[in-house]
């Protein structure tokens, strides 16, 4: 696993998995966590490819998908920027919440747990977490 820094962004690349998916995921996650702010400029394809030492086409593919999802926008002659729409980032965070929960529920269901079981476990974990916060 290689850790590489590009401006304010940190990437961990695993060459045994598709690289474009990793770049996409890691930029998305930086956006969702607020590590890159609204309207902020992100590195150009060339800067990103140079710093990560990977093919510019791979970076381009990730950038196109971010743009298509409305998370970034290209400004003519200026580069690529994070969307200025707070609403868009909010929706995106809500989409992530839905995705994580669905993922969790699918795993629990595949283990054979009912919704009641899951609810019970969640409450137990929740109160334990709160408890540990206080100590």
């Amino acid at each position: 696993m290689d850790i590489r820094q590009v401006g304010a962004l940190t990437f961990q690349l695993d060459f045994s998995q598709p690289l474009y998916e990793q770049i996409l995921e890691q930029i998305r996650s930086a956006l969702a966590k607020g590590e890159i702010g609204l309207g902020e400029k992100i590195p150009s394809v060339r800067e990103m490819a140079h710093a990560l030492k990977i093919n510019p086409n791979t970076v381009m593919r990730a950038y196109k998908e971010l743009e298509r999802d409305g998370l970034t926008e290209k400004r003519r002659g200026q580069g690529t920027f994070v969307t200025t729409s707070e609403e868009r980032v909010k929706t995106f965070r809500a989409e992530l919440v839905k995705e994580y929960i669905d993922d969790f529920l699918n795993k629990m269901e595949s283990l054979g747990y009912s919704w009641e079981d899951i609810e019970g476990y969640m409450q137990e974990r929740g109160s334990r977490r709160k408890g540990s916060d206080l100590t």
């Binding site: 394809v45 060339r46 140079h50 030492k53 990977i54 510019p56």
Partner: peptide, 10 residues
């Protein structure tokens, strides 16, 4: 060399 190639080939 790798960085040069990447910049140039962009």
């Amino acid at each position: 060399i790798i960085e040069g190639m990447i910049d140039y080939l962009s």
